[in-house]
Design a protein around this nucleic acid. Structure first.
Lengths: 195, 195
DNA sequence: AAATAAAAATGAACTGGTTTAGGAAATAGA
DNA sequence: TCTATTTCCTAAACCAGTTCATTTTTATTT
C-alpha cells in the first residue's frame, strides 16, 4: 500500500484523517500505468475517474469542429487531471486526456468517491477546498486571457510554470495559451534577438 | 425571517436541512439593499461576503493597467456573486462588483460561513457541489473563448442567457465576451441586415 | 421639460495574431 | 543505424477584431 501514500499525503494537507480513515480510503485507490500517447479520457465516453499523477505528464484538450486542438489543462507530478464536467455530471466527455510521457497514476472511481464521501464526511471539506482553489485558478486564467496579450500570457506562464513548459510540446503550450504555434515561434524569436 | 427564505430554498435544492438547521442558518444571513452604480466589492479591500441576488443585477469586473474594463461575471435573481479569489483566500480583491440596478441581496459573512460549516457539516456538501458546478461552468467558458470566434460566442450567450443580455449594458456584455463594444455593434448590424 | 451625462452606432485606418506553404531538426520505432 | 514520423522554424499574405474620432440615441438629474 506504500505506493498509494502520495494521495493520502495530498489529502492530509487539507484535512486530518485518522489511521482508520486512511486505511479505509486506501482500499478505494488504484494504481494505473500508462504509456506515452495513451488516452485516459476520450470524447464520447463518460469519464470514470479522477487521476492523481505520481509520475509523468498529461494534457487535457478539445478538438474543435475544424480539427484544431485547444488545451484546457496540463498535469505533472502531484497534480490531478480528468474531464471535470464529464466526471461530475457523469455525461460523455468532450476532452481527450493524453499521456505526454510514460506515466503512473493513482485513480479514484466516481462511484467509490461518492461512497466514501458519505462514509467520511471530512472528505467533503477536502473536496470543497480543492475545488474552490481550482475555481479561483480558472477565474484568474479567464481574466488573464481577457486582459493580456499573447506575449504577456506567455511570459506569465514561463515564470510560473517553467517546469511544465520544459516538458510539454510547443504546440500544446501554444494551444493552452490561446494562439498558434507559429506565433509562439515568433514570440520566442523576438526574445532571443532582444537579448 | 421570511425575507431570508430564498437562500434556504436555494441550499435545500442540494442538501436536506432539518428545521433546526434552517433556523440556525438563518441567524447568519443578512439582507442588504444597494442602489444602482453602488459597489459591493472594490479592489484593494478584502471581500467579506458572498451575496445571493434576491432582486436586481450585478457585474464583476477587472480594470486593467490601461484602464480597460473586463467583465468576469454577471448575476441576476437567484445567482451568487463576489470576488471569489479574494473571499476564499481573504486577500485584497482585484475586482469591482457593481450593482447594475437597484438591488436586494442576502449576504453571508466569511467568518460566519466558516463557523456554520463546522456546525452543520451537511453544508460542506452544498458548498462542494455548487463550487464543482461553477468550476465546470468556468472550464466551458475558457474552452469557448479558446475555440470560438467573437460572433459564435455572442450567439451562444444570446441563446443561453438572453435574460441577462437584455438587462446589462452593451459595453458590459462585450467585455464579458472578450471583444470591443464597437465590434459588438458590428456583429449586431450584420445580423439585422441579414434578416 | 430642459440640461447633462452615459451609452450605442458608424466608419476608416490600423495591428496582433492567423494562415499557408515550405524546409530543418529532433524523436521514435524497427 | 536507418527510416518514418512528429515537432519546430521561417516568412509573406491575410483577416478578425481594435482604435480613434465623431455623431446619435437613451437615461438620469434638476
Amino acid at each position: 500500500m506504500k505506493d498509494l501514500q502520495p494521495v493520502i499525503d495530498y489529502i492530509s494537507r487539507y484535512v486530518d484523517l485518522t489511521d482508520d480513515e486512511k486505511k479505509h480510503l486506501v482500499t478505494f485507490l488504484k494504481i494505473t500505468k500508462v504509456k506515452k500517447r495513451q488516452f485516459i479520457v476520450q470524447p464520447g465516453f463518460v469519464c470514470r475517474h479522477k487521476s492523481y499523477v505520481v509520475k509523468g505528464a498529461f494534457r487535457g484538450y478539445l478538438v474543435d469542429n475544424v480539427g484544431k486542438e485547444h488545451t484546457l489543462s496540463f498535469a505533472i507530478e502531484d497534480w490531478w487531471i480528468s474531464d471535470y464536467s464529464s466526471l461530475i455530471y457523469q455525461e460523455p466527455a468532450t476532452l481527450f486526456v493524453e499521456a505526454l510521457e510514460d506515466s503512473v497514476l493513482i485513480q479514484i472511481e466516481y462511484e467509490d468517491e461518492q461512497k466514501f464521501l458519505k462514509e467520511i464526511p471530512k472528505l467533503e471539506k477536502f473536496e470543497r477546498i480543492i475545488t474552490q482553489r481550482s475555481l479561483a485558478f480558472h477565474q484568474k486564467r479567464l481574466l488573464s486571457n481577457l486582459t493580456k496579450t499573447a506575449e504577456e500570457r506567455y511570459d506569465e506562464f514561463m515564470s510560473k510554470y517553467s517546469a511544465i513548459a520544459k516538458r510539454v510540446p510547443q504546440y500544446a503550450l501554444a494551444s493552452y495559451l490561446g494562439f498558434s504555434t507559429e506565433y509562439l515561434s515568433k514570440i520566442r524569436n523576438r526574445k532571443i534577438s532582444k537579448s
